[in-house]
């Protein structure tokens, strides 16, 4: 055995463990590098942890952030009450209307039942026509009289009665004084019945029917000639609520000419 061999054996004895250890460390490092440097591998490791944390966070949100969010919302709503009311008005109107409509439908069905049980030659004729056209008998009686027509439509500021905008078929009604009078009558009626939440919705004047659709900062007055039937009124209300919700925006209320154009576009051909 040479000196060298001996030395080698000694080396082996002293360093073999270390060497293997170093090799295994090197391998581990390589593995780790593979994990860290390659996105998919890293994701596989980390995602579950993040998911867990995220889940925890989401579960805790109501407790940690909830009060802050609620406060912020509350303050925001309070600061922009007008805007909120303006936005909710048409929607609320529709909801209430749906409810009332349903009630009325029930009532109307009850009446129709009664009518079905009565019998006359006239009603037989009417019933025949109603069947053919699909329109209710009662409405046919009225439509026979005369068709409803929108003569004028005005968007009027609540309180002051100032006309924000208007559209009329014929320019023979003085909008400013009419709108003022309507507003005064409305204020009077609402005062007299001491019902702040109740609005005057209908006025008859000579041969005209005036339908008033209330919103928070303004109301829309529609002057109608002809027969103001429930069907017509219903459709008109829907159209006005839609108009307020989808067509009118805040800038329109400050610009009478833009609003006038929109009014004309929507209500000129009153095929309601």
């Amino acid at each position: 055995m040479t000196q060298d061999d001996k030395l080698q054996i000694l080396k082996d004895i002293l360093l073999k463990d270390e060497h293997e250890y170093a090799l295994s460390l090197e391998q581990k490092l390589k593995d780790l590098e593979a994990v860290i440097n390659q996105q998919p591998n890293l994701s596989k490791k980390i995602n579950p942890i993040i998911d867990d944390k995220l889940l925890e966070f989401v579960e805790e949100i109501p407790e940690t952030l909830g009060p802050t969010i609620t406060e912020t919302l509350k303050a925001e709503i309070k600061n922009s009450q007008d805007a909120v009311v303006e936005a909710l008005y048409p929607i609320m109107g529709k909801m209430i209307k749906k409810y009332v409509q349903k009630e009325i439908q029930l009532l109307s069905e009850a009446i129709n039942n009664k009518m079905n049980n009565t019998f006359s030659f006239e009603s037989l004729k009417r019933r025949f026509r109603a069947k053919r056209s699909g329109v209710s008998e009662g409405d046919i009686i009225l439509q026979d009289h005369f068709k409803p027509t929108i003569e004028q439509i005005m968007v009027i500021e609540q309180g002051s009665g100032i006309v924000t905008s208007e559209y009329s078929k014929t320019q023979n009604i003085d909008q400013d004084t009419v709108a003022g009078m309507l507003t005064a009558i409305k204020s009077f009626a609402e005062d007299a019945f001491q019902a702040e939440t109740q609005n005057l919705e209908y006025i008859e004047y000579e041969n005209y029917h005036i339908h008033l659709q209330n919103f928070s900062n303004y109301y829309i007055a529609v002057v109608i000639s002809g027969a103001f039937t429930a069907t017509f009124r219903n459709k008109l209300e829907d159209k006005l609520l839609d108009f307020a919700q989808n067509v009118i925006n805040k800038t329109d209320l400050e610009n009478s000419s833009i609003l006038a154009t929109k009014l004309k576009a929507q209500f000129e051909h009153e095929i309601i």
């Binding site: 500021e157 609540q158 309180g159 002051s160 009665g161 100032i162 400013d176 004084t177 003022g180 005064a184 204020s187 009077f188 609402e190 005062d191």
Partner: peptide
């Protein structure tokens, strides 16, 4: 647009709703 209110010897009896938006 001029609102001619009915006379009132006691101003506190004026209908408030007539005054809104003045």
């Amino acid at each position: 647009v001029i609102w001619d209110l009915e006379g009132n010897d006691d101003i506190t009896n004026t209908r408030p709703s007539y005054l809104i938006g003045t």
